[in-house]
Design a protein around this nucleic acid. Structure first.
Lengths: 194, 194
DNA sequence: AAATTATGTTAATCTAGTTTAACTTTTATT
DNA sequence: AATAAAAGTTAAACTAGATTAACATAATTT
């Protein structure tokens, strides 16, 4: 029944027969992680594509100075993997860590390759998912260049109101590319205006 | 013969029979643009996926203050489209303009959909291409947050030495997210160190 | 309930990068 | 060849955001 969430998720993209759905289910693993556990560690190979059934993760990078930079947050119906590491099976640049207890559906690299062969429609599914992710990523680059931190925060808050309330504020600051101190300043300015 | 460049390009990803190659060729158009011409205009729908045979383009965004922000450069063997507009067939956020006379292979939206049906391997091809593009885009976001402008420029110069020499410097500044004046300062600092 | 530890705020000082403006060099156009 | 337009440089004044540091308020752990 935990698979259902994934099967619902893919319906707007492709339709599978019930046999295909059953076969797919035999090729995935449902796994539970506790808050603060790592799903992927920088330097290790990301062995599975992870779909979130419940919970919340941060994907982040520790730079050479030891500073943490949040690349993305993932919640229900989204993915939490180091895709670069997964597709090349090379060491990960990013960490993925649980911000809450999190339940995942995991596609191992080998099983997903097999699924692509057995159910070619899945190529289409993942093509479409990644197309959208790429477009969002490009737009974020542009926003980072053309908007100041306050504007970026307002867009974030509007786009992901649940995440804004759900994760520690210093991680949102990191996602926005600013320090927690400056983020604090921005928020107090926004409160005063109301 | 202009198709050959594309057929070579896809070989690392998928292998097509010669019938498939021929069919594919009937579904694309080769088109020539002059320097400064627009392939895609912000506000219009991006009607085709464009593969560059020769030439060079910039993909850019004009913000509300009228400032230009370069999202990417594209040269031979790369793509020059507003993918977000193409996949949704909604108005483009970005412009794509030729920096040189440019020859393209164009896949119209309808023809590409048909190609996906007739040659399902193409789903795999485009999945893999976009996976890589997404990974590169994520890494760029992180670099923009964790490195200063000088470091970003050195990485750009190393990664795309040809582009560095091929396009106007003020566009590279825009791609790096800095002003042309500050870019000029950085470069003179780098020259002095040698 | 006390004590840690994690998270959040405020304010002073500092800096990477912007803005403005004047100037130089290169490239296109007549 | 002359002129205009586009691209690139330099320098002074300025600002968004970083840094440092001290403090405040949750949230956990003992």
């Amino acid at each position: 029944m935990n698979h259902n969430r994934f099967l619902e998720y893919i319906k707007p993209y492709i339709s599978l027969t019930s046999e295909e759905e059953k076969f797919l289910m035999t090729k995935v693993v449902v796994r539970n992680y506790l808050k603060n556990q790592y799903i992927v560690q920088q330097g290790d190979v990301c062995k599975s594509a992870n779909f979130i059934i419940s919970g919340c993760t941060k994907t982040f990078y520790i730079d050479l100075e030891g500073n943490e930079h949040v690349v993305m947050f993932s919640v229900e119906d989204w993915w939490a993997s180091d895709l670069g590491s997964f597709i090349t099976q090379a060491p990960a640049d990013f960490n993925v860590q649980c911000l809450e207890n999190t339940q995942l559906i995991q596609f191992s690299y080998e099983n997903l390759e097999e699924l692509y062969v057995q159910i070619p429609k899945l190529e289409r599914l993942f093509r479409k998912i990644i197309e959208r992710a790429f477009v969002a990523s490009q737009k974020r680059i542009i926003r980072n260049f053309s908007l100041d931190a306050k504007e970026r925060y307002l867009i974030f808050k509007n786009t992901y109101p649940k995440i804004d309330k759900r994760v520690p504020q210093y991680l949102i600051a990191s996602y926005l590319g600013i320090t927690k101190e400056f983020f604090s300043k921005i928020k107090s300015q926004l409160v005063q205006k109301e």
